[in-house]
Design a protein around this nucleic acid. Structure first.
Lengths: 337, 337
DNA sequence: TAAAAATACAAAAACGATTAAGTAAACAGC
DNA sequence: GCTGTTTACTTAATCGTTTTTGTATTTTTA
């Protein structure tokens, strides 16, 4: 690797001048600046990030902590889309992305961040009660979390309350009065959606029987199928089921069809997330699309804001709204009595 | 940040001794070693990667070039699963993953690798004819590519030839003789599958009419729907369609159902990839599952092998086989004459 | 017991950049 | 013509490690 020293030798000036020329300092004459730049180019010079970091304390590197208990990890479209949005925004602002190693027994997440000198870290898909995560967000490094709020830290949330409300109102508007809800695993997301669900029902003067609301998990089609079966077995089954997410919905839909019921003629269903698949399945799934790329990009902006203006930035929470995708999986319920 | 120097002061020894103690060199007495380690722990010492890199020329950092023309990027399950496998294996071996910035006008991919001092780079989902990619793989940095072979460079391939053959033989075994194939966009993957398709047919004594083979694209449900429609419109339509991938299959399936045909009673279909969804859709999709995580992990091993033993490693190509997922989307064709 | 070898440390250079401080030369002002 | 300012550099320190070489002290060997 050709270093600044060799350019200095080739140009007959000191390394200081090279550095200043390359970084556009004011006390280098235009003539030498050009000569140096040309020479650097010619010799194939590239700055050494390690050396620069050592001196400047800046890495332009952002850590992403991405750990999924369920093991679907990156393949979970919700999270990969957030990551995609985050990556694009960060890269556009001149930062690189490094994964915080989650398979390293000898270093905690925070240690790892310190070791790599990342300037900030995004916690995307982690178990937020993990002590290592707690240690990380309690550290003095800028942090942003997705769909979870740590006191005093920046966060980007999907507007689950508004989302589920919108979804509820939509299916209500289609004529449904027996609306069931299979929700996800206990989490702030589930909490928001559950509250939103009940609140929307209440506002519309609807009382939801307890057995219409089932505790499920996220991203698990077979569990969802099971719970869907329980709903269908009720003496007075719902005419519409809201699933925890689009992927789970597939399981529910299978269960429904195995009983010879048609969607949406016999029963309506809606998902949540708005993953790519929702639009192309049959029938297209009615779902609430979460703007995951926007969320990722917003998170990146928050984090970089903190990195670049630590004194004047107050970490705050941004809520990103979604939009209803009207598929064809929800239709007016049959009138049969 | 507490540095080696401060520990040295606290312990009353030189920084050299600290470094050696911490790195387990032989010329430090066990007593001092322990004293130093305890003190380092106590003071919350963490090595500085930048300083270490500067001296040792090692970063333990691997670059991943991940660029998708279609824009689905990370959300494409095939690639995200490869990345997941790669990441896990690399991390287990002590390497971190940094994305090679694809939104940086001022630096080429190779420059970026040099700047970050990554020790190797995996090219996962790129346009392989991109001049920057060519420059990258022509550089002196260890490289591994996925599903594409550059002369003399390590590569990991999915065994598309064997895969499509297996799939063909399976549907043939189920009784199908009118087998159509919608393939993906021009690429080595498509080439291998197309050759495999024709070869399998030939070996089974089957002649495939030209109009049964359609040029499609990958990961595009609506295009696939269109092409499926064309196949169904043929005077003598196929009894089974092989789609370019599982996701595209969704589009084909929609088209089929819109014409009132049932799967698999009226027509059989098969996908390719074995994404998560295939197992939970209705009916479960018969597909050829590519071991994407294995591919990623294998790629990581190849790359690290080159990094750690550059003298004795000959970059080579590994072919990873897949396995047939027997869903219920393929059944014996109707006998109707 | 003197020489040789081993042990346990220290000193100092080096990695490749940045940057504060210093310095000649050119120039301006009166 | 002397002083004060610019201009365009250079010097040298520094960031946090690693590593080669050097050196006392102790231990072993003949």
């Amino acid at each position: 690797m050709v270093s600044i020293k060799e350019i200095a030798a080739a140009c007959g000036v000191s390394t200081a001048t090279i550095s200043k020329a390359l970084n556009g300092a004011h006390d280098v004459s235009e003539a030498t600046r050009q000569r140096i730049c040309r020479m650097a180019d010619e010799m194939g010079y590239h700055p050494n990030a390690a050396a620069r970091t050592l001196k400047t304390k800046r890495t332009y590197d952002i850590g992403v902590l991405f750990k999924d208990e369920a093991g679907s990890g990156l393949t979970h479209e919700y999270f990969s889309a957030v990551l995609e949005g985050f990556k694009n925004e960060a890269e556009a602002k001149g930062y690189d992305i490094t994964f915080i190693n989650t398979n390293n027994a000898s270093m905690s997440y925070l240690d790892h961040c310190a070791y790599r000198n990342v300037e900030g870290v995004a916690v995307v898909c982690a178990n937020f009660s993990d002590p290592q995560v707690l240690e990380l967000v309690s550290g003095h490094i800028p942090v942003v979390t997705i769909d979870y709020v740590f006191n005093g830290k920046a966060a980007v949330l999907s507007d689950n309350l508004k989302g589920i409300t919108e979804l509820f109102q939509y299916v209500y508007g289609q004529g449904h009065r027996k609306i069931a809800f299979i929700h996800g695993a206990p989490s702030s997301v589930t909490e928001a959606r559950t509250v939103g669900f009940y609140r929307a029902a209440e506002e519309l003067g609807l009382t939801v029987p307890d057995q219409y609301v089932r505790k499920g998990v996220f991203h698990d089609a077979s569990t969802c199928a099971l719970l869907t079966g329980q709903l269908l077995d009720l003496p007075d089954p719902p005419t519409c089921i809201l699933f925890p997410d689009d992927f789970s919905a597939l399981g529910g839909i299978s269960e429904i069809r195995q009983r010879g019921l048609r969607i949406p003629e016999d029963i309506s269903v809606a998902g949540y997330d708005g993953i790519h698949m929702a639009q192309v399945m049959d029938p297209p799934l009615t779902t609430l699309h979460q703007k995951t790329r926007t969320m990722g990009a917003t998170a990146a902006r928050h984090l970089i804001e903190q990195i670049e203006h630590p004194k004047t930035t107050l970490p705050h929470t941004t809520v990103v709204g979604g939009d209803l995708w009207q598929g064809r999986s929800v239709a007016a319920p049959q009138k049969h009595d």
